[in-house]
């Protein structure tokens, strides 16, 4: 690990001043991803600004029934919050599907938003990676691609976004609040993560001097009946091959409301808008669920190692919607 300076500001303003004056500085939250990347030499900050002392760890009710989640709320705390569990169960389930209990106790909401891909070639300094070294090429394209994305990919990068939490946030239309010495901004979750295109090194809309302060969840009654289903190579402590965050409201046999987002298959947390459109107003049956999933996956670009993901994603979407529909029937 490259030697670095470490500072721990006492308030948000001091943190923002520090990052504005220190080129090559990085904010440190739980450190569950940044420290790994520093150990591997992928991240090489000159200064680490530890923000864990800042007062950004509350979950507050919003007047409209939504919630405002401080950027430093730990994943395990958020997953256990009764309001999250009641109003946005898919988010609680997504958090609990991620990592291990030890990591969830450390990981923060802000850090989770900035989680970087687990592509093995990105981590390996001996491999070519456009994300790590722009213009270097991509060893993943013809390498082991079991974990790689099929939606939103480019010829420069096929890395999958690894977060579970962000998949739920994408389905819930979360808004990311950020602040810098230049002022405050609100970034819709769909615009927060960027597609790789020719510049896979640019992963988010966050400027280098901006600090994530909170995530807002709008009131969303349909989300009260929602779930997160994660499919992976072992029962725990593995990244998703495919994950599905889904909410469903059925009225008179027809889909009256739906939210659908995918993980493990997208270059960013993937809001499945094509599938949502196909579902809305249509029958809530198995054939319709599969057709909608296939509509979403029609845009997939697969490699030999991840071609199974279109069928897996289709099956997982259909299964998750089926279970939600059955739940709705039951009560």
């Amino acid at each position: 690990m490259k030697p670095f300076a470490y500072v721990k500001p006492a308030d948000v303003e001091a943190a923002l001043r520090a990052v504005a004056t220190e080129p090559g500085a990085k904010f440190l939250g739980g450190g569950t991803n940044l420290v790994d990347l520093m150990r591997e030499g992928v991240e090489r900050p000159d200064t680490v600004i530890d923000v864990t002392g800042l007062p950004l760890d509350a979950v507050d009710d919003l007047p409209d029934g939504g919630l405002r989640i401080g950027a430093l709320v730990r994943n395990s705390v958020l997953a256990a919050d009764p309001r999250i569990r009641a109003r946005y169960p898919m988010l609680s389930q997504a958090l609990l599907a991620g990592a291990s209990p030890q990591l969830r106790n450390m990981a923060t909401v802000g850090g989770n938003l900035l989680q970087r891909t687990r592509c093995a070639y990105f981590y390996d300094a001996a491999a070519a990676c456009n994300k790590r070294e722009p213009g270097a090429g991509c060893d993943a394209l013809d390498g082991f691609t079991r974990g790689h994305a099929v939606l939103g990919v480019s010829g420069s990068c096929i890395a999958a976004h690894p977060s579970d939490m962000c998949v739920a946030l994408a389905a819930l239309d979360a808004v990311v609040e950020v602040r810098s010495v230049r002022g405050d901004r609100r970034i819709p979750i769909g615009e927060f993560h960027l597609l790789p295109g020719d510049t896979p090194q640019n992963e988010t809309a966050l400027a280098p001097d901006e600090l994530i302060t909170a995530v807002e969840l709008p009131a969303l009654p349909v989300a009260a009946r929602s779930r997160y289903r994660k499919v992976r190579d072992r029962a725990s402590y593995a990244f998703a091959l495919v994950s599905v965050a889904a909410a469903l409201e059925v009225r008179d046999g027809a889909v009256a409301g739906v939210r659908l987002a995918l993980g493990g298959v997208g270059a960013k947390p993937w809001r499945a808008r094509a599938a949502e459109e196909a579902l809305l107003g249509g029958a809530a049956d198995e054939a319709a669920f599969r057709r909608a999933a296939e509509a979403e996956l029609a845009a997939a670009t697969v490699r030999p190692g991840n071609a199974f993901k279109t069928a897996l994603a289709t099956a997982t979407i259909a299964a998750t919607l089926r279970e939600l529909a059955r739940e709705e029937d039951a009560g």
């Binding site: 390996d124 001996a126 390498g143 082991f144 072992r234 725990s236």
Partner: peptide
């Protein structure tokens, strides 16, 4: 990696030994 002979998953996060679950 069949192109290079390099072990690609040289870590316990990518080499999946069984977990308790």
């Amino acid at each position: 990696d069949p192109r290079t002979g390099r072990v690609v998953n040289a870590s316990l996060s990518e080499y999946h030994v069984p977990v308790h679950a």
